[in-house]
Design a protein around this nucleic acid. Structure first.
Lengths: 355, 355
DNA sequence: CTGAAAGCGCTTACAG
DNA sequence: CTGAAAGCGCTTACAG
């Protein structure tokens, strides 16, 4: 039986400093109630030994402290919002890993098409008074109210998927939306001739207040300014998100326009466009959209969608929870921003993609 | 002080079964020395409680068992083989996480251009007799000898970065090389006209025995067969890997050829080609190559390299070590293959890439 | 075949 | 300001 490394724990520090381990613990955690002299002596020994606490033992001991209650607020998952399954999967995965450290996660859901439902959940969370909160700030006003509540109660909160500028959140975890749109334009630039037009498609119930869509569009247009100033961008907005409406509008537009080489859909609704294009037999138009959803991947396989841009939604949920955990349990310092990679998925690499 | 969950550990099982926790432990780990009757009783309780062991406590207790010695065999890192820094970083990261569980990692390095040095390290590893081994099988014959040794001594081994078919390794962790080449061809297909030629560039000291390069080339050519059967692929092989030689050969070839729309370099040496292209002012040729190395990323920024294909080398090293750890410490069952995502990096998303 | 006890490295009431 | 002791949930050598 060899020892792990020749003696390097609180016990050894205590022995060398000729104090008890309780005192060592106080110094390690910078707690009050230790004379300056012993404190200095112990710190010197810690430095000398290059002491690293055993995280295992720390956590195990902490397990006796009782529950920490975390709250998570996300859009409810429906057929239309399948995207949100992934962040929720991430939350579940995180919960599996930290449950044994006494973390409980309470989930709150709202309807993305119903601002009232968001407001109701905000109320419920305020009553629940969690010790940490992660949410996706879909509706700005109510989100700000929730943020105010957190700041007043000193509850750390983490934003995922899209950010709200101007508040001191623990951390934002999600994509850099501007670059994401910028990248889409770059891909299109590679694939179509400069004299071909591009259709910029927004399909969402609320476009003007949808920060994510607007930012991506900005990035997209900026790329055009930077590299293809003469390129033509045709806008296409619809707040009716069902297939029939989208198809009808597309039909009308496409009758009037010629020379469209590519279509960029600013969110995961790209499958609607793919479906329409297939019915028209328009296989040659380059189609780019968002998110690794089953429908979208199917269109990718068929060659109707050319590129999907993805930002690891599962990891966003996972990392959001883990960040709160790190912060609450270990008082770890947290980066203010964790920007997700912007992944490019095609027919030939989707098989190996991991959310 | 709330309890984590109302009682759910070995102690509780022991109480209900009216035995000692030692006996419970024996049943949990399926060790001998328990009467069939008590065993059944305990198992019933475990099922009923849906008992999940506290991994923390398990590990902490294991820490007293003594060291487990792992060996890792990788190419030495030089300017020319900067790529291997990333897997080594992954190994270091893994070590940081599992050191406290009594895992020691011994690193062995060989020169990628010197088969003898590989053979020497194999000898050293055989003497070291690790309890687990991770390596990259650069030289086939010596690798097979090492594998034989592992199988004889029943040492679990994990291969990373490239595979050797026909052996029962614990796990292969790395890219699916064929698809990686296939993807490169797809990108080129999007970006150049069908009547433009593509240059397929292999730069390596040993090409014919380099499994990775050959497989990627196969995939690349297969895509052409499938989608662009009339497309022209010009081969370009050089076993001299310095800039001067590569430049000279390129010069000669490019004088004779016209209509080259794209160049595909099958490994990380793509920066040599980028450098040459820049000197010629040939900005319009599409250039695709491998790996997120500093040089390569610099050329990406400058717009000389258009796409880099990357397969998370750091994660390969990390996951390789963690796999051995899982297997040795928890007897976890391991997937035989963990294929890395094939990431596409461009000038517009490299900022957010994580190895 | 079974159990009592010590130990993994830390944290935390409690007593002084 | 300081220390002795119990406890986190498991594993293991040892004794019977």
């Amino acid at each position: 039986m060899k020892k792990n490394q020749d003696k390097a724990g609180v016990k050894e520090i205590a022995r060398r400093a000729k104090v008890s381990i309780a005192t060592v613990d106080r110094v390690i955690h910078n707690r009050s109630g230790v004379s300056a002299k012993t404190k200095e002596k112990i710190n010197a020994i810690i430095r000398e030994m290059n002491y690293q606490p055993n995280v295992l033992a720390q956590r195990l001991a902490l397990a006796s402290r009782g529950l920490i209650r975390l709250a998570v607020l996300l859009p409810v998952i429906s057929e239309e919002t399948e995207f949100w399954q992934a962040p929720l999967d991430g939350v579940n995965k995180a919960e599996g890993e930290i449950r044994q450290y006494g973390i409980h996660i309470e989930r709150f859901f709202f309807d993305q098409n119903d601002q009232q439902s968001f407001a109701r959940q905000v109320k419920r969370i305020e009553q629940y008074k969690p010790e940490g909160l992660m949410f996706s700030p879909t509706f700005a006003d109510d989100s700000i109210q929730l943020i105010r509540f957190c700041e007043q109660e000193e509850i750390p909160y983490v934003l995922i998927n899209s950010d709200i500028p101007g508040f001191d959140r623990q951390c934002y975890i999600g994509p850099e939306l501007f670059h994401s749109g910028y990248l889409a334009a770059q891909l299109i630039h590679y694939c179509i001739a400069d004299d071909q037009k591009v259709l910029l498609v927004n399909i969402a119930q609320e476009i003007d207040s949808n920060h994510a869509i607007l930012r991506k569009e900005e990035g997209f247009r900026q790329y055009y300014k930077d590299y293809i100033p003469k390129g033509a961008i045709l806008p296409f907005n619809t707040t009716q998100t069902d297939y029939a409406s989208v198809a009808q509008k597309l039909e009308k537009l496409m009758r009037q326009e010629t020379g469209i080489g590519a279509i960029f859909v600013t969110n995961s609704r790209v499958s609607l466009v793919a479906s329409w294009l297939e019915k028209q037999g328009m296989k040659d138009i380059l189609l780019i959209g968002y998110d690794f959803l089953k429908d979208n991947v199917d269109w990718l396989k068929k060659g109707m969608i050319d590129f999907l841009i993805c930002e690891k939604p599962q990891e966003q949920g996972y990392r959001g929870v883990m960040t709160l955990f790190q912060n609450l349990v270990y008082s770890a310092t947290i980066e203010k921003e964790y920007l997700m990679p912007i992944d490019i998925i095609t027919k030939e690499n989707y098989l190996f993609y991991r959310n």
